[in-house]
Design a protein around this nucleic acid. Structure first.
Lengths: 143, 143
DNA sequence: TTGCTATACGTAGCAAGCTACATATATTGC
DNA sequence: GCAATATATGTAGCTTGCTACGTATAGCAA
């Protein structure tokens, strides 16, 4: 296998394994990786944000977001609130009940990330990150 | 966001964007990224292999593989052949009709990979690959 | 040989990606 | 002001991941 193909294989491998591991860890709390990410991003913005903004930050397509939010709303962790003066957008607000869970999720995420990445020297991690960021931009330019 | 979290975000971003792009390119041929990968691996082994072997090579779980193979069999590109002396395993065989498509797919994959990765210097790509491989192993050890 | 365990494949059902299409509301340009 | 366009959200339906469970066959050990 050529180096480019092998790189792509490893990418897929790590991304999926990470998701699987984290989903398994969160299962007890009834959460998943993406839903946890959504909650964490929302917690950083107490004044709330629209679905569109959250969709961009999480880098998913909007139908995916709709379902994530449906699930979180069902769990009583967020609500979609009408925005005065803008009847097509919603403001997403974290329920007070969600705050302790968000702290737990954030801690679990950081701990797990560190457990998985602890053997990677910081300079190599930085370089790999930079390579990935460059590729992502290349992909998003459509080029 | 801390460097570890940012790294993980970039990982997900690149992996998904790559899959989306490649799926879109293959749509005209009625194929997808995983199915193409399956065909390419099978083409490298004219004597065929069992589902278990292919499952390991593609790094998916076996129910995922079952569905991929169902689709490919439906398209007439492969067949599951009984193995003499082993009544539980199947030998997967590529149909002769699939060979030209496999060549196309392999060429498309290589071309697209190169288009996306051409701006990454080989030494950096190698380093990033090595980082990813290390992380994957860490993840697979369960540690 | 008989029964336990391991292996190979399959089915069911869920989550999370995606595209394509639908609906309602804003915005903009004439 | 009205028509055309753009934006925000939602729905439908597909693929690909996964886990959990089912079934048949192989292998091994008492």
């Amino acid at each position: 296998m050529n180096p480019e193909a092998f790189f792509i294989d490893q990418l897929r491998r790590v991304t999926l394994r990470w998701r699987t591991r984290f989903d398994a860890e969160l299962k007890a709390q009834g959460q998943t990786l993406v839903r946890a990410r959504a909650l964490v991003y929302l917690a950083r913005r107490p004044e709330g944000m629209t679905q569109r903004e959250l969709t961009e930050q999480l880098m998913v397509e909007h139908p995916t977001m709709v379902r994530i939010l449906d699930a979180l709303e069902e769990q009583g962790l967020i609500r979609r609130e009408p925005i005065e003066g803008n009847r097509r957008a919603n403001r997403l607000i974290l329920s007070p009940a969600a705050l302790p869970m968000v702290d737990e999720l954030e801690a679990a995420f950081a701990a797990e990330a560190h457990r998985v990445l602890r053997h990677v020297p910081p300079d190599k991690l930085a370089l790999a990150t930079e390579v990935l960021r460059g590729i992502a931009e290349q992909l998003e330019e459509g080029a």
